[in-house]
Write a protein that binds this DNA or RNA. Structure first.
Lengths: 345, 345
DNA sequence: CGACGTCCATGAGACGATTCACGCCGTGAG
DNA sequence: CTCACGGCGTGAATCGTCTCATGGACGTCG
């Protein structure tokens, strides 16, 4: 049965069946009001009978534009990105656009591949969380007429719009909070500085340390992560424990990493150890408050970021805009440790 | 600058620039070996100079097929679905296909809209987690030549392939476990039975109860959820607490709901209350083990499901196949409650 | 020297929907 | 009665790419 799917019906088939010209079929589809009711009914009946579905590619080829937006995020499994994607989708739905989502996995190679693919598909616009600092490919896409908005990183190029959170401020918030708790040594589990967010958060950390009259070189010890997820956090903390024992305070570049850190700590020393290490995460993912030790973290307005980025993309005049949101600190139990050094009043 | 993006260069432009015919440009792009090196170089130079990017729509229009697969899930923010999506993406990447991901939000209206959109875009295939039992639209799509695989629900129609987990077995595992702990009353926080997974898990619960020689009507009390996420679980449990106090044992239709339940319990009665209610979730999302009370849950092979579904889609002969994976129970602290009734040895 | 083969470039036609200049028909005004 | 016009339908041209039948140029062999 239906094993050999016959060719899909086209407007020509419909026109023949309804006994009209192809142009008329097209009119029924796109401007029904210019077609006489009787004719229209006949065409609609033919469409029904032939199970006709418009060929979007041909339509778009002719129209030259396409109502799809491509979004490229670093990791589709990170709730931060899906929350942002949800904001994007909500804005796009209002304008009857669709979202094509893909994940670059932090891999510049995959990033390039997807960008080319999206552009060949003729997307209306691109929302990209770049894997690295090189935005030239994005600029090139934009010069070819694709709208581009850099997501989650303030664009370093004047010609590109971007929506981001002030990551320097975020890093500063986190570090300041740990310093306020009396800590004088911080471990920062961070990703590669080629990722702007990572570099910026580090800069914020250093700024907070300097604000406190201290030298970052004495206070901050940055540990690179293999991957920016729970597995990466787990591995990094496990290595750290083996080499130098539990650190008093840890700042994780995102909540997933913090989850991994908690996992490693618990495995190594149970709840006792877990409650002796001050932890601050980043993103405030949905379950942050529900963890064994509820996570202190830096919240970003994810949904709003996605919404705004999509909104920029859909604007008629595509003036370059750079939107920066402010992060906020959400204090929970994970950063409140009994035995912290000289805790100030 | 580049404010008025001039028309993108086409093969015609490239051909003119390189002083060759359009067919030759096409050959350079698709079968470079049949073009003489000198000519090839000339064409490539022209491509470079004109910043030419192939128009994928025209290419696909001509080819009649498209190397994109559409996936429609219920909730893009549920880690279960993104894990599955990741499996899909991994399989598709091997074949150089792209994934278009969208989320129906449990809304049949949105589902219809996206299905039509996908089909108009000419996707090669569709991976769908249906919002309801009506699979006719999917059958219709398939009869028009789009490959369809039903995801996370065994297809109720003979002509559709599907990849699913045995949800009856999953429900049975969860209920059996709670019965084994000595519980004789279970609250099941479930979604609407129009969602097959929900109906099946309920059937499994009932089966387990009957296996234990009990009557489901005495044992199981099903509470409908407004939404299948943390907010829904929180709301349902909060209402439950107000109406009849804390239930001894709760089975949640997914882990997100369980997270919400824990949230509600903690808010109402702190850790004390939380540790008095036995909770079993479903999915084994990444953070399940990290929660305040680590969650006992039913694990599904998410990545493998996605991978397999995509694999079915890509097969040449599209015979109808129905793959069923078996769920497994992961026991953690949340289901081990001190004061459970007559706990058997 | 002619026949033949190889290598390579050519360009018309097809894919399917949309657009638009055109023409037909009937009606109402002059 | 004629002309103009509005309402409707027509169908050729178009978008950008790929395919494939065609044939030119050149070299080799008999």
């Amino acid at each position: 049965m239906s094993d050999r799917p016959q060719r899909r019906a086209s407007v020509v088939d419909v026109a023949r069946r309804a006994g009209v010209a192809v142009g008329t079929v097209s009119n029924v589809l796109n401007r029904p009001e210019v077609v006489a009711p009787a004719t229209r009914a006949r065409v609609l009946a033919a469409i029904e009978e032939l199970d006709f579905v418009r060929n979007g590619r041909a339509r778009e080829l002719r129209a030259g534009q396409i109502s799809t937006v491509g979004a490229l995020v670093l990791d589709i499994r990170n709730p931060f990105f899906t929350d942002v994607a949800r904001g994007v989708e909500d804005r796009l739905a209002e304008a009857d656009y669709t979202l094509m989502l893909a994940s670059s996995d932090d891999d510049p190679e995959r990033e390039r591949k997807y960008l080319r693919l999206f552009e060949e598909h003729g997307v209306h616009g691109l929302l990209v969380v770049p894997t690295g600092p090189d935005l030239m490919p994005l600029l090139a896409s934009q010069s070819r007429g694709v709208r581009v908005v850099v997501l989650d990183a303030p664009s370093s190029v004047d010609e590109l719009s971007s929506v981001a959170v002030d990551d320097v401020a975020g890093g500063r918030l986190a570090a300041q909070h740990l310093l306020d708790q009396g800590h004088r040594r911080l471990v920062f589990l961070n990703g590669p500085h080629t990722i702007r967010q990572c570099a910026d958060r580090r800069a914020g950390v250093d700024a907070a340390v300097r604000d406190a009259g201290l030298d970052p070189r004495d206070v901050v010890s940055e540990v690179p992560l293999s991957t920016l997820d729970a597995a990466g956090g787990d591995a990094a903390m496990t290595a750290l424990l083996a080499e130098q024992g539990p650190p008093p305070a840890v700042f994780c570049v995102n909540d997933l990493v913090a989850v991994g850190v908690q996992r490693a700590l618990r495995r190594a020393g149970g709840t006792a150890l877990l409650s002796r290490v001050a932890i601050v995460g980043y993103d405030d993912i949905d379950v942050a408050a529900e963890l064994a030790v509820p996570l202190t973290t830096v919240r970003q307005p994810t949904h709003e970021m996605g919404w705004t980025a999509a909104d920029l993309l859909l604007r008629d005049r595509h003036a370059v805009e750079r939107v920066i949101f402010e992060p906020t600190l959400v204090v929970r139990a994970s950063s409140q440790v009994a035995g912290a050094g000289a805790a100030p009043g």
